[in-house]
């Protein structure tokens, strides 16, 4: 920690935000796949899916899972950008300067947070156009945002590990595919009760289900119960492990 940690992080975050401003397609492509899935599930499969909830439209049931998919596809760009910086010697340039060493990684993480929040807003706007409605109050919305921010941070630090350890561009961005797939084996699209034994066990005990259920309960003004705490525990747990791995990978890489 040096006295300049914040100034250095701000300078480098400004740099990568410029990258995003100059290639807004990265935010659009992040939002396009989840939106396409949302359209597909609401207007094609949705009619045949029985969520057991009659009061709300299927898009409202679906949205929490779609938001997580948005984040999972968005963080691939963090891995990609970090890999490019390492590959092109930019990181070495920064590392040979008297800056706070953690600033390089934090700049990418904060940029990921900003980019993902913009993508999430786009997805929510599309969902609103498709009939998503929520009577949730300010407190519940803040809680939803809080969970999404924690989830983004947790996955972004995983992306940092991937970006630092990858040996090729493809490897750097491909790691997010399984993360995008995870919501399919969860309560994101259909209730877990309809799944056969082992699949159902996996679905009910993996992080996405508790996070999806917590967000869904908050948005539909249902009691959140234990889900919020389990979701929180998953997010903080993944965040702590990923952060530790990222710092270790960084030390290994830049001596």
């Amino acid at each position: 920690m040096t006295a300049h940690t914040y100034a250095d992080t701000a300078a480098l975050t400004g740099r990568s935000l410029r990258h995003i401003a100059r290639s807004p397609d990265t935010i659009i492509t992040t939002a396009v796949t989840p939106i396409a899935m949302m359209l597909l599930f609401v207007y094609v499969f949705g009619g045949a899916i029985d969520t057991g909830a009659t009061a709300e439209p299927y898009v409202t049931y679906l949205l929490p899972g779609i938001l997580l998919i948005t984040i999972a596809s968005g963080i691939a760009y963090t891995a990609y950008r970090l890999f490019m910086d390492m590959d092109k010697g930019i990181v070495e340039r920064f590392q040979s300067m008297p800056i706070a060493r953690s600033a390089v990684l934090w700049a990418h993480v904060l940029t990921s947070l900003v980019a993902n929040l913009i993508s999430l807003v786009i997805v929510v706007l599309v969902a609103l156009a498709m009939g998503f409605r929520s009577g949730a109050g300010v407190g519940a919305w803040l809680a939803v945002v809080g969970i999404l921010v924690l989830f983004t941070l947790a996955l972004t630090w995983l992306a940092v590990v991937a970006g630092l350890s990858a040996t090729s561009v493809d490897g750097a961005s491909a790691f997010s595919y399984p993360l995008i797939f995870l919501p399919f084996i969860s309560s994101a699209f259909v209730p877990t009760a309809s799944m056969p034994g082992p699949v159902r066990w996996f679905a009910e005990n993996q992080p996405v289900t508790s996070i999806v259920d917590a967000i869904r309960s908050l948005l539909t003004q249902q009691p959140v119960g234990n889900d919020a705490w389990i979701a929180l525990a998953w997010c903080v747990g993944i965040l702590a492990v990923a952060y530790g791995l990222a710092v270790a990978a960084y030390r290994r890489k830049v001596a």
Partner: peptide
């Protein structure tokens, strides 16, 4: 850290931000 404040490095490949 003191060394870094005294030096600058230009690596083998121009490490400029192309964007």
């Amino acid at each position: 850290h003191d060394v870094r404040a005294s030096i600058s490095l230009t690596g083998q490949f121009a490490a400029v931000d192309e964007i």
